[in-house]
Design a protein around this nucleic acid. Structure first.
Length: 796
DNA sequence: GATTTTACGTA
DNA sequence: CGTACGTAAAATCT
């Protein structure tokens, strides 16, 4: 059935969808209240404060396409050449707009965007106010289609923001005024003059900075500066790999840039990168950072993308500019500066509004130690690396031979496809499926570690599984051993305070989460090593060594997350265990079974005296505690314990009866979420959970407070150590592993004990939980490489 | 050649 | 139906 325009004439808002669906087709109404998309649209509009009854509603295509697919209406695969039928409908749309003259047209989905503006990439252009190329002077705002929200719930929030922006724009027909003065491709003289102007004008107090770099070497090709959200200038330093100016001329340019960067307050997006580049390549130290917009955005919206394109779409009303990236890089850079400045204004207001300025300031203080650690790197024992590599390669070779003999053929055990063929087709072994996150997810065949372990203990007379498991393990070890080492014999990692996934293009099933822990990834500036230093397997840690004359000390928060859970759930028994054992040395702790939380848990579960708990029972206790704290299911628990599903079920049930407090606490978390979908950790760091209401959201939420509290606790102690002037010559930060810190000290026992005094001082922080003081204790180890570390007793 | 999927290491 | 994180290689798409 033909589905045309509905709604009151001359409405201020016209909504344009893509094509009618089943219900629309039957009823002849766009976005029918009975259809899925219609229902979602109604919900979105009500959240945004838009009254559907006051809107004109229409689709680009006026008849339901075959298989509900818009590409049916195009001649080409890329969907750029419409068939005559669709062209006719677009003409009708044009006439509908001209006849009604709405103040704003809201386009839903990429085909609406295309019909209204000629652009195709909805994720790039959503949220921007753009002029229509269909009807001259018509204002358009596009966003995701409701059916997309149903598939990818993470797009809900941006869509809501876009609709709110559209509501604002429905009050008047004018395009937003663009007052920006953007000066790209400035000459050297022009840029130097601008720097001098900034330096002498006390009104130009806060300066925006952005650099573009070329790899390898992270050389700066373009630099942009700006003194307001409406003024920025950029200039070329290098084109490709060749400098634009003779050395002296470039030096003069840098002299003036350096003065600006050293004398003014700077706004920057991701100081960790830009500031290291200016320091390393040009010796410029940015002294005062007014704001890092990446960090501010991380505090305000930890669940959202943090690239400038996305932030501008929800903070500002400027034209899209990211597509100039390749067309006109210098203009792109200057736009970045202006818009970053504008975003910074919005973010500082937001920080106040949501009461997160304090959390933001703590996070900013993490920048210097994080940058230092990236630059410093970690020394590698090349002999040890080669020894390990040779050893692993040797084992791999012989295992490969063994497997070939066993199965009569050679396959690539890195290939899941080939392994599936071998096991499930050739050998007829029962097919294993991946554990699903939701019952509605489709079952996927797998040959991963868990599946092989399950087969190893359930399938009789199949000696191969153990060997395959061993082989796969060794193959992954190669990734950690085959790494490039810097000329100084080091590897480097980038510690990311806000996590690495900052880009709106980085798709992720459940959207972004950032719980305030640092992540570690490849350093673009110093690309040596395996990148992430927080997932190095234990065996390969022996190649990471202290420099000559130094030793490594590590201090680890003891049972960190379990302590937090105990206090949060008001588990008096656990709290008193943690209090009694607090401040005791490692060897003392080992003597007292009543301080061992895993033994206690096992004694409970098996109804035995703590003195009768066997090591095996203790292991079960440990696993159950873990499982329960994070709401693990019986399937995964049986994998961990290597027991049957029934046994796992009954263990969980027994623990549930023995410790009912945990369930009560988890219920309180759900209640907290229900109010505002926002949780705060024990340092006040907030996180809003935008995923769909349900178990997977709850599980993530249960882990938030313990995990992020310990992350903050660790990072705050690192900040205190880095800022403590008394210990600059005593303690050198080395590694951060979420709940452990590694430092280097001079290789004497006296120095070690002195260092431990300060480590303890900075790591112990009183945290108030339900009007009670909580301190997480830490223990110590020392050694000369990352793997072989010895426990050391220290009493403060 | 670019993008998606699968798997895996740590806390 | 533990969570969080980043990376490598295979598989798949264009």
């Amino acid at each position: 059935m033909y589905v045309g325009l509905t709604g009151p004439k001359h409405s201020k808002i016209m909504i344009v969808g893509e094509a009618p669906g089943e219900n629309e087709d039957r009823e002849g109404l766009p976005f029918s209240n009975n259809g899925v998309s219609g229902k979602t649209l109604n919900w979105l509009l009500s959240q945004a404060g838009i009254n559907r009854a006051e809107c004109l509603i229409v689709n680009v295509a006026r008849k339901r396409p075959q298989f509900n697919r818009m590409d049916q209406y195009f001649l080409d695969k890329e969907c750029t050449m419409p068939k005559p039928e669709l062209s006719g409908w677009i003409q009708e749309l044009k006439e509908d707009i001209e006849r009604n003259k709405p103040n704003v047209v809201i386009g839903l989905g990429s085909y609406a965007l295309w019909a209204l503006t000629g652009e195709k990439a909805i994720s790039k252009f959503r949220g921007y106010t753009i002029p229509s190329n269909l009807v001259q002077g018509q204002k358009v705002i596009c966003t995701y289609h409701p059916s997309n929200i149903n598939r990818e719930f993470k797009n809900f929030f941006p869509t809501l923001m876009d609709l709110k922006k559209a509501k604002f724009h429905s009050k008047h027909p004018q395009m937003p005024v663009d007052n920006r003065i953007i000066i790209p491709d400035a000459s050297r003289e022009q840029f130097i003059n601008y720097c001098r102007e900034i330096l002498i004008d006390p009104g130009k107090k806060v300066i925006g900075l952005d650099v573009e770099t070329v790899q390898p070497g992270s050389h700066i090709s373009i630099i942009g500066l700006g003194h307001s959200r409406n003024y920025a200038m950029s200039t070329w330093i290098m084109r490709g790999m060749s400098p634009c100016y003779p050395e002296n001329d470039e030096f003069e340019l840098w002299y003036w840039i350096a003065r600006v960067l050293e004398e003014k307050e700077i706004i920057i997006q991701n100081a960790s990168y830009d500031a290291i580049v200016t320091m390393l390549n040009h010796g410029i130290h940015i002294k005062r950072i007014h704001m890092d917009t990446l960090i501010a955005a991380h505090i305000v919206w930890p669940e959202l993308p943090r690239d400038l394109g996305f932030l501008a779409s929800i903070c500002l009303d400027v034209p899209p500019w990211k597509h100039f990236n390749t067309q006109h890089p210098s203009y792109y850079n200057a736009c970045d500066v202006c818009n970053m400045y504008g975003i910074a204004d919005v973010l500082s207001k937001k920080l106040n509004e949501v009461n997160q300025t304090d959390v933001y300031n703590w996070e900013m203080r993490q920048l210097p130690p994080a940058m230092m650690l990236q630059l410093q790197g970690t020394l590698i024992d090349e002999d040890e690396r080669l020894r390990l590599l040779k050893e692993v390669e040797g084992i791999i070779e012989s295992t490969e031979k063994g497997l070939e003999e066993l199965f009569g053929k050679k396959i690539n055990y890195r290939s899941s496809k080939q392994l599936q063929q071998l096991l499930y087709t050739d050998l007829n072994i029962p097919t294993q499926y991946k554990r699903r996150k939701k019952a509605s997810d489709e079952r996927k065949i797998t040959t991963d570690k868990n599946a092989l372990k399950y087969l190893e203990r359930t399938v009789k007379d199949n000696p191969g599984f153990t060997l395959i498991l061993e082989h796969k393990k060794n193959l992954t070890l190669l990734n950690f051993l085959n790494v490039d080492i810097s000329p100084e014999g080091k590897v480097h990692t980038s510690y990311n305070i806000t996590g690495k996934k900052i880009d709106s293009k980085d798709e992720d099933d459940e959207g972004r989460k950032s719980f305030g822990r640092w992540s570690s990834s490849e350093s673009i500036i110093l690309p040596f090593g395996s990148g992430n230093l927080q997932n190095i397997p234990e065996i390969t840690r022996s190649m990471y060594i202290a420099p000559k004359g130094f030793r490594i000390i590590t201090s680890d928060y003891i049972q960190a997350e379990a302590v937090v859970v105990a206090y949060l759930s008001n588990d008096r028994r656990m709290i008193s265990v943690f209090k009694e054992s607090f401040g005791k040395t490692t060897s003392e702790r080992k003597k007292h079974k009543e301080w061992d939380v895993h033994i206690l848990k096992a004694a409970d579960l098996f109804s035995v005296d703590i003195n009768d708990v066997t090591p095996k029972m203790r292991k079960v206790g440990k696993t159950i505690r873990h499982a329960r704290n994070y709401d693990m299911g019986p399937g995964t628990l049986s994998d961990h314990l290597g027991c049957s599903l029934g046994e796992a079920r009954s263990l969980l049930k027994r623990d549930d009866i023995a410790n009912p407090l945990l369930k009560i606490w988890q219920a309180s978390i759900i209640e907290e979420l229900r109010q505002t979908r926002t949780l705060a950790n024990l340092f006040g760091r907030q996180h809003r959970f935008l995923e769909r209401w349900g178990d997977s959201l709850f599980k993530s939420a249960f882990s938030y407070k313990p995990q992020s509290t310990i992350g903050d606790l660790m990072n705050r102690s690192i900040v205190r150590m880095y800022e403590d002037n008394e210990i600059v010559d005593l303690i050198h930060l080395w590694l951060q592993l979420h709940d452990a810190v590694y430092v280097l000290v001079k290789d004497t026992d006296d120095t070690m004990y002195e260092a431990m005094h300060y480590l303890r001082k900075h790591m112990r922080e009183v945290i108030m939980v339900n009007h009670e003081e909580m301190i997480v204790d830490s223990d110590f180890k020392y050694g000369y490489n990352w793997k072989d570390l010895r426990e050391v007793d220290y009493v403060s």
